[in-house]
Amino acid sequence: MNKKQGLSRALQRREDVAGYLFMAPSLIFFIGFVIIPMFICVGMSLTDATLHNAAPTRFVGLKNFITMWTDKTFLGALKNTFLIVVVSVPVTCLFSLWVASATYKMHNVPLSLFRVIFYLPVVTGSVAVTVVWKWIFDNYSGILNTVLKTSGIIQKNINWLGTPGLTIWCIILILLTTSVGQPIVLYISALGNVDQSLVEAAEVDGANNLQVFWRIKWPQIMPTTLYIIVITTINSFQCFALIQLLTQGGSDTNTVMYYIYYTAFKMTEQAGHFGYANAMGVILAIFIGILSAIQFKLGSEK
């Protein structure tokens, strides 16, 4: 009996070791490139660190966290970031759901065609997509101004990417084109997996289309919706490439993510810039964490 127990323990240990060994490569990367930098980031946020190490780094407590609430640029960037999140998350979800609902019953060929069309901006890469949009929005020879002028809608060119209050909406539009691809594919898959017997039963009981959707399909695609909302929220909070490539934070389009990068890597002459950038990173992570937690909570209640 003891011998048997010893053998099973040894087997169990071997399985555990094998499991950990399989996990090891990704675990090493996860710890090395996510967990440890996360702690370094929190630590740095409490210091006056600079990328240049000319002066010794000093502990400054919560000074960076206090400073940022009086920093107009940070507050402007925070406002823009929230605007992007508040607009792009629901629009992305609703648009994706609408497209998926309209296409998921189609035959394979047109369905694949729609999947490709909507997924193309996702796989094209943000730089290429942004360059194309930059051409479209060009102030002097952009296709949008040309079309609007030719059709008599506008008399003078509109500076789409150089007008505060307008440029941020152009950026949100571009962000939407790159964000909807994955949710559409996920929704098509989720809607395809809805239990048809329940749908048919509801229809037999006299439920209309809206009732079928709201009572039968919506609860079943809720996990997908939750995933899409969380991922879109995180991506929207981290909006960086579009800003970097189109406006460099100008025309009132700064976002927290871009301001973090700018403070960390461009403001190297500024005392304590690296610590300050880390503090902003911590605050951004806290906001993302809180919103994600709320979304998970609401999603699970539903």
């Binding site: 929005f137 500076n159 440029t167």
Partner: peptide, 17 residues
Amino acid sequence: DASLAGGDEIAKFYQGA
């Protein structure tokens, strides 16, 4: 023009815009 930086301006000038 807040949509142009130096390099963009050169390109627009070169294109005749």
